[in-house]
Design a protein around this nucleic acid. Structure first.
Length: 569
RNA sequence: UGGGCCAUCGCCAAACGGUAAGGCAACGGACUCUGACUCCGUCAUCUCAAGGUUCGAAUCCUUGUGGCCCAGCCA
């Protein structure tokens, strides 16, 4: 193949990378001169913790700003004081920072625009486009009509502009009780789109707001506030999820009536769903309250905090979100994709060390008692840059119970009486005998080693089929290791008839008698490793201490070998 | 049975009237000091269905079918 062919191929490859529908829309806007730049935002309400679904929106908005050399704003959509807490603004900021979406100096609060929103409302009233309505909540619902029947006009719809102005001023000044008056847009009570049937713009709520305190007793509704927020900040593309499609006509109505010179444009995309996960606030709350999980950051959950504690990296989540793509079809991504992404991200970045989860002692009968040798071992055989470490080796070791069988099935490559295997990075050993306790449980394995087979000597006279990992009995560090599976029992629906999560009984297995290589001494929270032949593990940020290590299994390694069940151990 | 949106491999998802990309998963095989990784191969004669337009349709038009969203003084 010639060099030009190569180039052609690369060009073709480039062409194949297609743009999602939002990028296509932005390209078009830019080409037609609708906008000359791109400005996006992520606007959560601080009423809970962020989860993997939010990550898609965050990364989408931030990614678009980057791609088009535009800007990305962080904005708290805090227009409803009954639901919002400062606690959540802190956790949300932390999560977004961790994900790497940088809002630079553009951190905003919708509540800081209350004055402008109020002025906008006055403008709408002055234009005859909004009115104060005295109907009760129940009455408003009745007047709204149904999906199939049109609504009917409020008896207060035709109040004079002057009266509306006065009433709205009274609303602002706390003259009315909660629920007694609202400001409504005057649009069309017969619209087939229910959102256009004179939607409520402002409600009265005598309540302390986390940011504005008691300054206000009227608060704008999302449908009015959001377009105003976007317009004030100069957002060009206001990206939200599909359920707001029906609200777009109202969004456009607001920016049109308020006569913003460069109105933002709303574009909707499909939320990310993951198979077999729990994201509902009330369900998680129940799991926390009943002690099924140990908090909103329990590693079995998919909140950003939980994923972080579980050992997922921002890079892996970005990779996952990119892999899932952007579209308008409701879909549910496979958890296996997320697992692929974290394995892929950690593969070359992390040291591969040995850990024994379920130890059995292995004694090398022909190895001198009391002798210790230090083996030079690469931290990652696929990435030399990670350097080398020393692993002590001696007469007594621990190996994993799974790696020995008294009566092995066919194709069992590990240790069994008479078989020779390689101790990873060390020597070949052959099993001579083993010991059992009264219950028949194997307690010790005796081997002999062949000094000629030491790793690194280039020994090639014979080969072994199996390589097993080990840890030196004397120097290994004891650790607790937690193996996680999905919190949801995947053989059932996510929720049962009573609305409880069908909890997987094996979602957490805590192993307290594990041993890890001495190099892991002092490992702390964000550290993670590959435990060779087992998976990727991280130090638990909540429960691990320097002298009592706790590791979380992030994800297991893939395996094409299934250990036969019911065979003797 | 009002309005809006969606439908392409087990799961995501391209294709924009020119003859069904890619990834994940799965399954073979090679390699292997991780039963991992890597590599090679297999995996939609067909795009929800039925008609129609066209030399040519996943793409356009009909008519159906299925799914999601909307009747908060939530966002």
């Amino acid at each position: 193949m010639s060099e030009t062919d190569n180039i052609d191929q690369e060009v073709k490859k480039e062409e194949v990378i297609s743009r999602n529908f939002i990028e296509q829309a932005i390209d078009k806007d830019l080409a037609e001169g609708v906008y000359d730049h791109v400005h996006t935002r992520f606007p959560p309400e601080p009423n809970g913790y962020l989860h993997i679904g939010h990550a898609k929106s965050i990364l989408l908005n931030y990614g678009l700003a980057q791609e088009y050399h535009g800007q990305f704003n962080m904005r708290f959509d805090d227009t409803n004081p009954t639901k919002e807490k400062t606690e959540f603004v802190d956790s949300i900021k932390k999560d977004i920072q961790w994900l790497g979406a940088d809002w630079e100096d553009r951190l905003f609060f919708a509540s800081n625009y209350f004055e402008q929103m109020y002025e906008g409302a006055v403008k709408l009233i002055s234009k005859g486009k909004a009115y104060v309505c005295d109907l009760s909540a129940d009455e408003i619902r009745e007047y709204r009509g149904t999906l199939t029947e049109p609504g009917k006009n409020s008896p207060y719809r035709d109040r004079s502009i002057e009266e509306n102005l006065e009433l709205f001023d009274n609303m602002k000044h706390g003259v009315y009780e909660d629920g007694t008056k609202v400001l409504r847009a005057k649009i069309d009570m017969a619209s087939p789109n229910i959102n256009m049937r004179d939607p409520i713009l402002y409600r009265v709520a005598h309540m302390t707001h986390h940011n504005t305190g008691d300054t206000w007793c009227i608060y704008p509704m999302y449908d009015y506030a959001h377009p105003v927020e976007d317009a004030i900040e100069g957002i060009t593309h206001s990206i939200c999820t599909l359920e707001f499609e029906d609200h777009r006509p109202l969004y456009d109505w607001v920016v049109r009536e308020l006569e913003y010179p460069h109105p933002p444009r709303q574009i909707e995309f499909a939320k990310m769903y993951l198979t077999h996960v729990v994201t509902g606030k009330r369900y998680i709350k129940k799991l926390v309250e009943t002690g099924v999980v140990d908090g909103w950051d329990d590693p079995r959950l998919v909140s950003i905090a939980a994923l972080r504690r579980r050992g997922f990296t921002p890079e892996s989540i970005k990779m996952f979100v990119d892999m899932c793509g952007i579209s308008k079809s409701n879909s549910s991504s496979d958890y296996a994709m997320l697992e692929y992404c974290i394995r892929e991200d950690l593969k070359l970045k992390k040291s591969r060390v040995m850990a024994v989860l379920d130890p059995i002692k292995l004694i090398i009968d022909n190895y001198p008692e009391g002798q210790v040798e230090y083996l030079e071992v690469p931290n990652n055989m696929e990435n030399e840059a990670l350097g080398m470490r020393q692993v002590p080796f001696g007469r007594e070791l621990y190996i994993d119970r799974e790696d020995f069988m008294e009566e092995p099935p066919k194709k069992y490559f590990r240790l069994f009486p008479g078989n020779e295997v390689r101790l990873m990075h060390a020597y070949f050993v052959t099993c001579n005998s083993f010991e059992k306790d009264e219950t028949g449980r194997i307690t010790q394995i005796h081997c002999t080693y062949d000094p000629k087979t030491k790793c690194g000597t280039g020994f090639a006279e014979r080969k072994v089929k199996g390589t097993i990992h080990w840890v030196p009995a004397e120097q290994a560090i004891k650790a607790q290791i937690r193996l996680y599976e999905n919190i949801v029992d995947e053989t059932k629906e996510v929720y049962d008839e009573e609305g409880n999560v069908n909890v997987n009984p094996n979602s957490l297995v805590t192993l307290t008698d594990c041993y890890v290589e001495p190099i892991l001494n002092g490992a702390t929270a964000p550290d993670s490793f590959q435990f060779v032949r087992q998976g990727y593990f991280c130090v638990d940020s909540k429960d691990s201490t320097p002298d009592s290590l706790v590791f979380n299994r992030i994800v297991s390694l893939k395996s094409s070998y299934v250990l036969p069940k019911n065979s003797k151990k």
